[in-house]
Amino acid sequence: MEPQPAVSRPAVFKDFNFKLLVIEKLMYQDQVLTPVFSIDELMEARGIGDVQSHVFDNDLAFTVLDESRTFFEELAISEELLAGVDELLVDGGNQIYYECSPVWDGEDDLFDVQSLDDLALLPNLKRLIGADSCAIVAPDKLERLAAQGVATT
């Protein structure tokens, strides 16, 4: 019997908001994770032309839209792509946040990272920009990042 090639299993994230930071890097910054998700295109295909009005009219403001949550939760990210992540950016202006909550204003904890347990999925992470912001609320965040060899700015 011939040896079978190793099959990379998709990573399982514990913290959805941490996963969003990784998707931001791979999908919207580096453009290596596809298909690229667009809430505007998805809603337009459903006959909704003005996503922001739809969100307000249906009392969906300041929540992660179900369509976005489902897509991003089910999105498989290979170990190979995760190994290429050397830097993450925590910024209220990240594209991923618009794709999840088109009217989010950054004034609440909707996208706060609660846990850094998923650092183990990023073996080559060297820098986390914005780690000292209030959007990462994990206990001992700076100490944990330093212990993993991740610089913070």
Rank of each mutant, 00 (worst) to 15 (best):
S8V: 00
I96H: 13
V85F: 06
N94E: 08
E80C: 01
A11W: 00
A120S: 11
E41D: 15
D117I: 02
A131C: 03
L75R: 15
F72H: 10
K14Y: 06
P5N: 01
H54A: 02
L21F: 01
N58C: 02
G47Q: 10
K25G: 04
L142S: 07
L26S: 13
Q52F: 03
V22H: 11
V137P: 01
M1E: 11
A131Y: 03
R46S: 14
D40A: 12
I136V: 07
V55T: 15
A6H: 05
V90F: 08
A6S: 06
S78G: 01
D86Q: 09
L60A: 12
D86L: 00
V113H: 09
I48M: 10
L125E: 07
D15G: 07
C134R: 05
D59L: 02
L20S: 10
L33S: 10
Q148S: 14
A151I: 01
L122D: 09
F18K: 13
I48K: 12
Q148A: 15
W104K: 12
E44D: 08
L116H: 13
T34R: 12
R46E: 11
R69T: 04
V22I: 06
L119F: 09
V90G: 14
E107G: 15
A11C: 05
I96L: 07
V90D: 11
I39E: 11
I96C: 12
M43D: 04
S8Q: 07
E74K: 15
D57W: 02
N124W: 00
N17A: 03
T153P: 05
V85Q: 07
Q52N: 13
T153C: 09
L21G: 06
D108L: 01
A83M: 02
S68N: 05
E80T: 14
F37G: 02
A83Y: 03
G93E: 05
P123C: 03
V51C: 14
R144M: 04
R127T: 05
M1N: 12
L121I: 11
G106Y: 00
F56S: 13
A146G: 09
Q52A: 12
K19E: 02
V36R: 14
F71Q: 14
E73C: 03
D132N: 13
L145V: 07
M43C: 14
D105N: 13
N124G: 05
A146D: 12
N124T: 04
N17V: 00
I23D: 03
Y98G: 07
T63S: 04
D40T: 14
L21P: 06
S68C: 04
K19V: 03
F37C: 06
V22E: 06
G106T: 03
A138R: 08
D140I: 02
E143D: 15
E143A: 12
V64C: 08
V113D: 06
M43N: 10
